[in-house]
Write a protein that binds this DNA or RNA. Sequence first.
DNA 1: TTGAAAGCGGTACCAT
DNA 2: ATGGTACCGCTTTCAA
Lengths: 327, 327
Amino acid sequence: MHPSTVSRALDPARRGRIGEPVVRRILEAAERLGYRPDTVAASLRSGRSNMVGIIVPDIANPVFSPIIGGLEDVLSARGYALIVADPQPQRTGADDIVQRLVARRVDGLVLANVALKDNSIERCLSWKVPVVLVNRAEAEARVPSVVSDDVAGMRLAVAHLLELGHRHILHLAGPQMLSTGSLRRRGFVEAMHEAGFTPADNDIEEAEAFTREAGRAAALRLLARQPEATAIVAANDLLALGIYEALRETGRRCPEDLSVIGHNDMPLVDLVDPPLSTIRISHREMGEQTGQLLLDLIEGVRGDAPYVVTAPLLVVRRSTQPPRISR
Amino acid sequence: MHPSTVSRALDPARRGRIGEPVVRRILEAAERLGYRPDTVAASLRSGRSNMVGIIVPDIANPVFSPIIGGLEDVLSARGYALIVADPQPQRTGADDIVQRLVARRVDGLVLANVALKDNSIERCLSWKVPVVLVNRAEAEARVPSVVSDDVAGMRLAVAHLLELGHRHILHLAGPQMLSTGSLRRRGFVEAMHEAGFTPADNDIEEAEAFTREAGRAAALRLLARQPEATAIVAANDLLALGIYEALRETGRRCPEDLSVIGHNDMPLVDLVDPPLSTIRISHREMGEQTGQLLLDLIEGVRGDAPYVVTAPLLVVRRSTQPPRISR
DNA sequence: TTGAAAGCGGTACCAT
DNA sequence: ATGGTACCGCTTTCAA
């Protein structure tokens, strides 16, 4: 039979232009022969690969894996495959990876790497590859992005502590080169201002990484400087767990001596001791939204560059309580 | 210039057959023009795509994400891209996904889905796609696999408890349709036998899933049946955390009333209350080994089907202690 | 060591 | 509504 006809019959979108019985016969034959269209050949000719790449700093990070999951879900439902790439700083930079993915003709790219400054975005822009940022925003907003509303999240955290009666609230910030680190710091300051407080520089300490160990070290510095404070807002849960360690080391108890609130609501923080109060972010949903956005972009449904912001949720557990009446 | 020459000059493997100065000129020109070879066209002609697919049941599962990470690492170092696919049971079966990946001409496939019986393996075998299983073994061993040594792991757990003085040890097993569930149950029984004990059927209870909730429910059943026991070996950490909940509900304390040991050493189990003793499995390393194995298979370095077994490690924390002398 | 030619397996475009 | 044809961009085989 005639190749063009077969090609059309097999593509649901173009099937309409073909006679019913012909389509049926072709489908039947394809089934019988176990025919599988070759995606590679199709890509070569059509220029579309039906593949999307995602660049993540660390697949095992509990923040990124649900994002990948949600993204994959949306993509595969529309026939796209997802390539994950995990740049090894010692080997390949992020923008080398962009090149490799573009060489594979991916139809779009998701950037989940959190560095505030890197030129992967420029690379994509100059190659005209549809891109969306996830869990990371860009100041200029040249590119669509999906992020949690960090200001709102910080507002929730601050409001919660204020309501409990805390007045001297500290912030354990994340690295300021990372998008979430700086966004949340800004969110904290803004939320405090809205509530009528002006956090001093001394009330904020920056951790060198989003890890327990860095959180512990930074918390030690912060607590030494501000022993009077009654509560800390951490820029993420790992940092909050680091605060736990610092408290234990300095003989303080949470929440009796100090209330601690995290950010992300990562798995198992409800089981640590004490169960961590935190701000829940639905990373999986962010992944899904990212997928939708990217597919719309790829398929030209929308030309603008929306800036999706998802709403966070306060989760109160047992690491926050009213400050002691003492003093 | 002449396409074949360029092609050869750009491929490090075939560069030797080309004159030095020519190679230099070509490389220079390629650089200057920003030339990127088109991977898709290359795939079409050569039949190799330099892509590998992995099928996982759940990307966000702390067991699978490090496996993916290790795998991606090894693959990308050798120029392969990794496609992750996450079958949605309600939408696409695992072997439909295999088909889709094969249509994309993946050079190899990693199966991380844990069901003991499914026909993806047959599919791959009949299509002659190189496959390796990870975190899952096959009874017939027709296909190479990378698994943790569950018998050894259980032996470590049992030996540890025995050494502490426990004599009545229970097992909270995982679902027996899953590879790890049945392997670990077998490992437990075997380890007990080696130590001179014969666990009764009554000493083992099967959880319906590898979740905290299923662990809690199963633990409740098991404890009601065997109130005299002093220790439980759980088939994984999540199940062990479920046991914690069951203990709390029934007014028992861990480790005073009952020692609990998990399996996997997933992130944060060192921070729960009490810190969980467990068997550490290096999932990332398993991912790396899987990558090596698959690449060897793809590139024909080895024709046999090795069965890689990685060694687990006992991690003692605070959920295990000697049984009470009472009674 | 280099050049020439022939496709890989589809899809897009044009003709009918 | 269907058939014909060119061609996507590279690799491979064969010839020079």
